[in-house]
Amino acid sequence: MRGEPVPKRQQRPGENLPWKPRKALETLHAASLASRSPRLGPEALACSREVSVVSFAIVSEVSVEFSGVSKRFGARTALAAVSGRLEPRRVLIVAGPNGAGKSTLLNIIAGVLRPSRGAVAYERDGEVLPRPRWFECLGMAAPDMAVYEELSALENLRFFARVRGVRRSADELRDLLDRLGLPAREHGRATGTYSSGMRQRVKLAQAVLHEPPVLLLDEPSSNLDEAGHRLVAELVAAFRTKAAVAVATNDPREVTWGDARVELAL
């Protein structure tokens, strides 16, 4: 097979990402390619490994439906009868001016805020999940979330991996931080001494480290530079191949990532 031209594969979203595949997926992906195209030789498979998008191993697909969701804070109505659906392999954009309730909607979808009216339902393989189990399926990064300032980026990720019950080696965690643009020399420094952009990268890392089937990102590029913005775009592209993604944003560039859109008004 050596020397034979490698058949050109159809490009998939986010294919040229700097994300390295994990071993099991590498094998799975290579095996699936081989079964689909017996003509592909080792070179082709090796090539597919190098460019493989999928650095995560989401096992099940989860969809989230929210219907007639309203939220009142005292006399003020933050959300009024909003409905929509997050589906696997689709990106839902939640847009609207400041104060329109984008973060409130994401918090309600995440289950950290109860709606005044309406309902949110998580469904996995036809089974409706009870609220305490939503958190197993979720990864979220938002401006009102923080990581522990006294701990380093690596210690933070190790902690979140442990409480989420996922096993990640120090190398895997370092690799994740590297891929999110946090240089290795910063991994051991307390995050309290980080710039806001570096902290945002650690927040994104804790949101994706357990490879959630539902990813909620609220203003994901806030505090990030242009390279960081591109990285978030790549992250969303990588997750949209398997997961249901919702992005709350006002950034016109981020709005274009969506397959569906919920427009909130003041």
């Binding site: 995440a110 950290v112 958190f135 979720l138 979220m140 938002a142 009102d144 979330m145 923080a146 990581v147 522990y148 300032e149 979140f160 409480v163 989420r164 927040k203 804790q206």
Partner: peptide, 10 residues
């Protein structure tokens, strides 16, 4: 420190 929400979700 705004870590409660992160912890709540994890």
């Amino acid at each position: 420190a705004h870590t409660a929400k992160t912890l709540r979700l994890a």
